[in-house]
Structure formats: structure tokens, C-alpha cells
Write a protein that binds this DNA or RNA. Structure first.
Lengths: 348, 348
DNA sequence: GAAACTCCTGCAATCGATTGCATTGACCTT
DNA sequence: AAGGTCAATGCAATCGATTGCAGGAGTTTC
């Protein structure tokens, strides 16, 4: 069987639907029908075609299929920095959910670097049927540009909000979660609270900051300028904040960090100077990354349902692509974060 | 300008090369030439075409292009579990390198679950021009199947070796690195050394184990069965190993962990029972993940050049795809790991 | 026994970009 | 001025899969 096949196709090239048709002595149309709606074809023909597919080792040519159907069955996931481990779980969830619905996933990173060309020119050339955007820093105008120039490209903003009610979004309750975090500290008796702020172009960062400020006000506490530190969501930002704190002399009794990485960096650096968490200072993080519960001390944090974000954003996007959901009635999912109390926070 | 355009194309659909041609009063062939080799076209025509492209908002249809050129300018990155943060840096490097050379990146995960269909049927249907495989657990036969059935698909095995000299690979010196790690412990005076082993289907795991065993023998030390623990490269495996150790009563003075995550889990769990690292036990990891140097204690580990792996594997794959490198002369890159001494290991 | 019906299959057009070959016309040479 | 050269452009086929339409075989109905 194998040998015969090889003799008949001496010049090796990937077999096409025509080759299968010839093999099974039917037309290409019939092969196509067997593959997409088997019930429309007689059983005997069907079996013959299946056998021919096996013999030739046929696999469909997606380019041709996409061209004909005007659909690539592919989504594009775009994030500012895929290198951040925070996205690991999300990427995994997105891929799994997409695969379940028959979609492939293209991944793009660092949109920010060259914001002019990235998305519109290179990526959106019928390679992807929809866009999953984890970057709130893109301005609304550009996105509207995307939607107006050609056909509107299905778009879901995930994790990081885009301040435009017309864009579908799947996010978490950043502001509320931040308030919850501060209230936890206040409940423990803390009154002197600092905050490490994430990159300011992210909407989520700003929401967390607003939540922090609101909760402080509600508790009748003052936000002290010298206890606010800018960061970029990595551990080095945490150590930098620690060094500023140490240099300034006067320490707060608690710090709310915009994410877990910065919290870990902070705790680590302070300990080098003998400031122990939680003995001398309480620290609460945000996200609940995998290592948080294994750290010393195990980190108190606001858990983000990352897997749910990835899964829901993907399924929403595919719903929109497939027209299950009306494009003009924006989906707005807001997932809740949970307070996970561990040992990095303690009553004063 | 904009208005005229809208009036002329009332039924909004993505413009094709034909539309651009009509706009510029040239043929589609000329537009194509302007876009791919501008120097072959008169300046005046060229400008007219560029203007038409701008006016219509034309973007190339990649499906049509792929079909015609039999090249998707896309590579597929496949890993057993993209969810592992270990891949973050790698994914980032792969995407960046690919983008630099004009390629997009499709990402697939969990090949292991359904090893029969995943790769060959769904993915390799002319969607990707090459495969970047981070999974040594696939059996050689299947991969050869991929190469024999149709046209050989360019393939590079990365990080995790595939035991087949004919397959291109970009890996690290796992065995040597493991020996280096053990020698570090031996140099510190340790003689009672345990090992947490990664998932056994990974070739890298086995190499590390062999390195461990060889180094032990060379140092005249015995490998004790009860100090070998199976793991799956996550922190829970580390805590499980710790619990086994605690239950057994007799502790080794040092442990070599197959990766950093398991090392962190081990250290964390042992400390709960009052066994302190490095006071009571030394632990060395493998990889040097981002959190390693911020942990308490900062983790001694064998640093893997993850970014280099991603970058080199990608550039090699694209070289092969583009025929820069002969397919039949396998590339075998072996990158070296470095010992990073921190504080989790100490002289006995 | 013929009309009406169903079911299966093939024909051929179509999706949009690329490229070998043919054509045009400008310019140069003698 | 006629013939030759060469660069610029257009024509039309091509890549492979899908699908509306139509034809043909077989079945039902009156």
C-alpha cells in the first residue's frame, strides 16, 4: 500500500484535495463534502474517500480554506509583554479554550514599541478573525481606526480595561479589590500605608490606585506622597521602592503593592536591612502568582482569576466572531478578586 | 478624500488588490510589484499606487498570499505546558526573533494529552512553515512520520532534546550542568545528597539525572534510593518531596532539584517543620527563574540561557525554512548553563 | 406508466495575490 | 527613418478548497 503510493507520486509534494479525489475516483467537491458534512454523502463513497485520505496522507490546506471562507479560525492574542510570567496561566487558558472551539492562537507582544504599524498593518491582514487585547494603553482612536477603516474586527479587551464603553471587555474589579486590600490593612490597625504603583499607562494600575486612595479617605487616613512609589510590575521595582523607603528614614507600617512581583522584591530588599515582614512591616500584593504561597512569608494578596479571564475573554471573542452575540451590544464582564490572607500581613 | 472614498465604496468590505488597482488606474500585477519590489516600477506609477493604498486602507490578504506562495510566514511553537512560567521568557524571545524576520508565531500547548492527532492533523495544514518543538517526549517515529508522509516539515527541537541525531536541536548541556551542580555541593563538603527528579518523559530530566549519578560516582558517593523523589517541575512536587523526607526521618545534607520551582517548594515546606535552608540543609536548583534571587534564601542554581534558547532555536528554524541552511546537515547547538552561587547552599 | 419527488454527485466559478510571458512605447543607433 | 534594445506594464494562469446549480439515478404517487 505504502509502496504503491510512493511509486504513483514520485515527486513528493503535499497532497491536495484533487489527489484524494483522483485516488477515490470521485470529484473534489465530494471529498470536500465528506470532510465537512459526511451525512450528505453515501456511505460507500464516504468510506472510499476516507481510505483515500489515509492513503495519500492528505491534510487540508488552511490557506486555501481561509481564502475561500474568509475566515482563518485563528485569533490573535496581543499583550504588551508576554515575557511577564503573569501571562503564563492566561496564555494557557486562551489556547485551551480556543482549541476547544477549533481555533488556533497567534501571539504578539510589545505592541507598545511601535504602536503605529504593529496591529493594523502586519497582523490584521486576514490572518486572524479577532483580537484579544491585553493592553489598555492603546488609545481609543487607534482602535476605532481599526474598526472604521475596513470591516470592524472583532475585539475583546481583557484584563486591562480600555476606557470605552463600546468595546467588549473582560476585566476584574480592580478598584474594589484595591479597596478590599486596604480595608484588610486598616482592619489590622494600620494607619500608615504606602503603595507601589504599577506602570501608569495601564488602566488597571490607575484603578488600583484610585481604589487605594478612596479606601484611605474612607478610613480617614492620609495618602502620603513620599510613600507612593512608581513601578513596572517586576521585582526590581519592589527593591527600588524598598531602597527609597530605607533612604527616607520613616517607614509606613504597611504597603499595598500593585502586584505580587513588586511585593516580593520589596520584602526581599527590606529584609537585607533588617526590616522583617511581617514583624516590622505588613505587605499585601495583588494577583496571587504561583510562588506567592511558597514565599517566606507566604504573601497575603488579592487573587485574580487569571484562568477565568483568559477563558471568558476567548469564548466571548469567538462568540462575537461567529455572530452568536450581537456586535453592537458590548459585553462587559467584571470578575471578582478574592482576598487571600496569608502571613505577610499582621495586626499592628 | 475620505468622503469620496466612502461614497465610491458604499458596501464596506476589506479592499483587495483589485480595488487598489482600479483606484490607481493600473493593473493588479503592478500593485503587487509596487508592494514587493518597488524598484521595478516607475516612480510616478509607484506614487499613484501608494496613494491608492492609503486611500483604500488596503491590507494584504495573507490567506491568498500564502496560497499562492506556499508559505505562511508563520512558525508554530509547541510546548507540553505553556502554562509553566518557565516558558514566559522563551515565548517572548521566540516572538521577538520571529517578528524581526517577518514571521508570526502560533502557539500550541498540551500536545501530550492527545498525541495522536494534535500536531499532524490540526496544525500542520500549511498554517505554519516550521515547527519549534519544546517537547522531547514525542517519540521519534511520530516525528519521522511527519517528515515522511508529506514534504518534510522544518523542525527544530529546543530545550528538550529528542534522541535522534537527524533532528535539528538547540539545547543546553543538562548532563554537564547537573554534574557541575553536584560538584559544587561536594566542594562544600556534602556527601549525603538527594535529588528531585523532573517528569521522566522529558529527555532533559533524564540527562540531569544521569549527570547527577555520574558526578556522585566520580566523587565516590552513593546514590540512595530513598533520597530520590519524582516530581513534575512544579512547587507542589517540592513540598511532596519535603514531606517524604520528613516522614523518612533521615535527611540528606543537600538536595539537587531538577528545577527551581521544586526547590522553592522543598525549602518552603521544610521550613514549616523547622528545617532551615541553608542552616540545616543545602538546596541547589536549576534554571534560575526570575524569583530565584529574591527568595529567602536566595537560591543557588544552574542558570539556563532561556532567552538564547528561544532566540537561537527560532533563527535556526527560519534559516532552515528559507533554505539558508541545508536541511540534511542537522544543526546541533548546545548552550552552556552557569552556576550561580547564592545563599541556599553552604559548606557543611 | 408518467409525473413529481428525493438524494447523490459533478461541473465550474470563486476567493485574492503572484508571476512568466507578451506587449507597448520610448529611446538609441546607424 | 527603419530597425533594434530595453524598461514598464498588462494579461491570464495558478495556488487549493468550497458551494450553488444542474443533471442523473432511483423511488413514490396517482
Amino acid at each position: 500500500m505504502r509502496e504503491r503510493c510512493e511509486l504513483m507520486v514520485p515527486a513528493r509534494k503535499t497532497p491536495t484535495i484533487q489527489d484524494v479525489a483522483r485516488h477515490a475516483s470521485v470529484s473534489a467537491a465530494t471529498v470536500s463534502r465528506v470532510l465537512s458534512s459526511p451525512e450528505r454523502v453515501t456511505e460507500t463513497t464516504r468510506e472510499r474517500v476516507y481510505a483515500a485520505v489515509r492513503d495519500t496522507g492528505y491534510t487540508i490546506n488552511q490557506a486555501a480554506r481561509s481564502l475561500r471562507l474568509k475566515a482563518a479560525r485563528t485569533i490573535l492574542m496581543a499583550a504588551p509583554n508576554i515575557g511577564n510570567p503573569f501571562y503564563s496561566t492566561i496564555v494557557d487558558a486562551v489556547i485551551r479554550e480556543a482549541a476547544e472551539r477549533g481555533y488556533s492562537v497567534l501571539v504578539a507582544s510589545r505592541i507598545g514599541d511601535d504602536p503605529n504599524r504593529w496591529l493594523s498593518d502586519y497582523m490584521l491582514s486576514n490572518r486572524a478573525d479577532g483580537l484579544l487585547l491585553f493592553d489598555g494603553s492603546l488609545d481609543t482612536n487607534r482602535l476605532h481606526g481599526l474598526r472604521d477603516d475596513g470591516v470592524a474586527l472583532p475585539l475583546v479587551a481583557a484584563y486591562d480595561e480600555i476606557p470605552d464603553a463600546k468595546i467588549h471587555s473582560v476585566i476584574t474589579d480592580n478598584r474594589l479589590a484595591a479597596k478590599r486590600a486596604i480595608r484588610h490593612l486598616v482592619d489590622l490597625g494600620h494607619t500608615e500605608i504606602g503603595h507601589i504603583i504599577g506602570p501608569s499607562r495601564n488602566q488597571s494600575t490607575n484603578e488600583r490606585f484610585i481604589g487605594f486612595a478612596e479606601a484611605m479617605q474612607e478610613a480617614g487616613l492620609v495618602v502620603r506622597e513620599e510613600w507612593l512609589f512608581p513601578g513596572t510590575y517586576n521585582m526590581e521595582s519592589g527593591t527600588a521602592a524598598a531602597e527609597h523607603l530605607l533612604a527616607s528614614g520613616k517607614l509606613p507600617t504597611a504597603v499595598f503593592s500593585g502586584n505580587d512581583e513588586m511585593a516580593l522584591g520589596l520584602i526581599h530588599r527590606l529584609r537585607l536591612d533588617g526590616i522583617d515582614c511581617p514583624r516590622d512591616i505588613s505587605v499585601i500584593g495583588f494577583d496571587d502568582i504561583a510562588v506567592a504561597r511558597f514565599f517566606d512569608p507566604p504573601l497575603t494578596t488579592m487573587r485574580q482569576p487569571r484562568e477565568d479571564i483568559g477563558r471568558m475573554a476567548t469564548s466571548s471573542l469567538i462568540d462575537i466572531i461567529e455572530g452568536v452575540v450581537p456586535e453592537d451590544e458590548p459585553i462587559h464582564v467584571i470578575l471578582t478578586s478574592d482576598l487571600v490572607v496569608r502571613e505577610s500581613t499582621r495586626a499592628i
